[in-house]
Amino acid sequence: MEHIPILKVGEFLLVSIQVDMHDRLAMTLQDDLTTKLVATRAKGVLIDISSLEMVDSFIGRMLGHMAAMAGVLGAEAVVVGMQPAVAITIVELGMELTGVRTALSVDKGMALLRTLVDEDSFTLNPVS
């Protein structure tokens, strides 16, 4: 069975989608990500979509689900690298990607993840 690789980088997971996914592959990725989040107790997930030539409503919904699942499992998710033409298209399509945090590049995404995770730990363990 085909899988999209999920790499562990420090306390984060990195998913780089390099192929045009058919629907089942996208669903498999969602399952794999939740399994990996639980197994590694990662605090954040970076989803790189810079190779994606399009994001249709199915893939958009999948990105939303992955962000939501990460949230439920105590991790932050950031989608990075969306191509400008893809951004224009999803806005005109009417997709809102509610709840999906985005950043322009992997570097900026990593920085955002770090900030979010630090904020989380501050909220969870307030210094008294």
């Binding site: 399009m54 249709d56 191509q83 033409a85 893809v86 224009i88 999803i90």
Partner: peptide
């Protein structure tokens, strides 16, 4: 153009699905 390609490809994908 790249935007034309992306829009047409996305519309095709929606309708094909």
């Amino acid at each position: 153009t790249l935007v034309a390609q992306t829009k047409m490809m996305t519309a095709t994908s929606e309708l094909a699905r």
